[in-house]
Design a binder for these strands. Sequence first.
DNA 1: GCCAACGTTGGC
DNA 2: GCCAACGTTGGC
Length: 152
Amino acid sequence: MSYWLMKSEPSVYSIDDLQKDGFSYWEGVRNYQARNFMEEMRNGDLAIFYHSNGSPSGAAGICRICQEAIPDSTAWDPSSAYYDRRSSPEKPIWMMVEVEFVEKFPKLISLKDLRKIPELNSFKLLEKGSRLSVMPVEPQHFEIIRKLSEAE
DNA sequence: GCCAACGTTGGC
DNA sequence: GCCAACGTTGGC
């Protein structure tokens, strides 16, 4: 079992939206590295739901992978914001997984707070210039963040 | 809205 | 294969 972090802009799709929906396809990823990570995801893997471009940004909750990578059909939908004419049902370029709501943290753990934790020094998310929207998370890092969410 | 950091594209 | 130009991400 592996751990991941997945970013979403709360103005587009937030942890509250996922809580309400229960499940959601993670469509619209248009970065090869992020796509490759999604292809590695297995049913039952857990992911931190991260709010990017939020006020503030930070870890908002946890979701579980419930459908392994399948072609992202928004890529061949001309009316979609994620349309990519290079992709087709015959030759899909982009993939998506489906995630299931697990929990919303009682309080968002802001990026600023994450940076205060010495044990998270090597966390990829916190590296300068890190922009990847889907990334693996070390099990010990995942545990630290989950524990942080229980504090106070 | 600004802008640094990064990824992608395309001319050569 | 190099690299300049351009587009995007995301913190602030």
